[in-house]
Design a protein around this nucleic acid. Sequence first.
DNA 1: TAGGTTTCGTATCGATCATTATGGATGAGC
DNA 2: GCTCATCCATAATGATCGATACGAAACCTA
Lengths: 188, 188
Amino acid sequence: MHLFWEHGYEATSLAMLREAMGLTPPQIYNAFTDKETLFRKALERYHQTEIGFALDALGAPVPTREAIRRLLLGAAEAYSRPGKPGGCLFISGGLATSPQAQAIADELKTYRKASEAAIAERLAKGKAIGDLPEGLAVGGFAKYLTGVMNGMSIQARDGASVEALRSLAQIALAALPVEGQNKAPSKE
Amino acid sequence: MHLFWEHGYEATSLAMLREAMGLTPPQIYNAFTDKETLFRKALERYHQTEIGFALDALGAPVPTREAIRRLLLGAAEAYSRPGKPGGCLFISGGLATSPQAQAIADELKTYRKASEAAIAERLAKGKAIGDLPEGLAVGGFAKYLTGVMNGMSIQARDGASVEALRSLAQIALAALPVEGQNKAPSKE
DNA sequence: TAGGTTTCGTATCGATCATTATGGATGAGC
DNA sequence: GCTCATCCATAATGATCGATACGAAACCTA
């Protein structure tokens, strides 16, 4: 998982995987069928072990703004963990691929779209509760927040510290509607 | 350039380049020395032909906030041009590479860092002019804006329309200090 | 027009890719 | 203790990578 995270799907050779796992090629193929299946397993593992912060943040019983704050600050921490590759596997894994690996690129895109959808869902819930203005464009803000997190992933890969990422997250939060304007607009 | 933009440095094979350029391998090597030099030429060309909006925006004789607005909206347009690969070559070109292509990854990182530095310079100028609050953290905001643009690049690659990117840019602008708080703080 | 040179496309190079066939070692059965 | 079957690491496979050596065609000179 770390190798795919660091080098992406295509640039990670079986020789690297073999050395890292201490397995022979037949052992790898017996256990994981082929490289693509192994990568998908790594994606699942990453989803379960490395980005629990996202589900925790979006599912926490807190106001929407606080949930988003936890989401972005969690990303700042998760994208810059010591001893781990910087950024997010769902982006580093394969943003630009060869035509042969199109299926992998699509899979990663699906994960990214799922993140955006989860954020949109939380925002919609916030609007329903009265946490957010009724006029708020849920889809647009979900794209903004996803974009910010994606950008943090690249900044992390470029060596940004956890403090720098936290600072970025704090600034990004300022784009959200302020508390005073929430709780249902004044009309009617 | 379009091939590198679409598939990244490593995933773009010489066979693809050969077919796209209509040249034989020796012609390519006579003209460009090797694949790495060809890629660097493509980077230069991209810098000159595709992202003039950034220099225009940062260099325009307008208030800082307007300059940043033009920068982000220009990115929205540049990252979703019809007939061009989505996103920014400086990101798509190679975010996660094999160890052999580390030099390419570093080169791309240098370009990205230069963008961040250019934004930081413009923000510092804005602060000096009085466009921005004296207490504003230039480096932090530069990282934020760079991150937003990087995120837009990924959103574009995932199929975001120019309208969606413009909307994202508009939301991101809300994180900047509002006009009323500028022109030197009230103390003293 | 004949000769010599230069140019240029084809075919091939070694290296590496993901994947699998094969032979030797190991352990069970009698 | 000997035979046989099973397992597994080494070695090889076809494909493709970036890069180049060779042969043919073309052109300029005499």
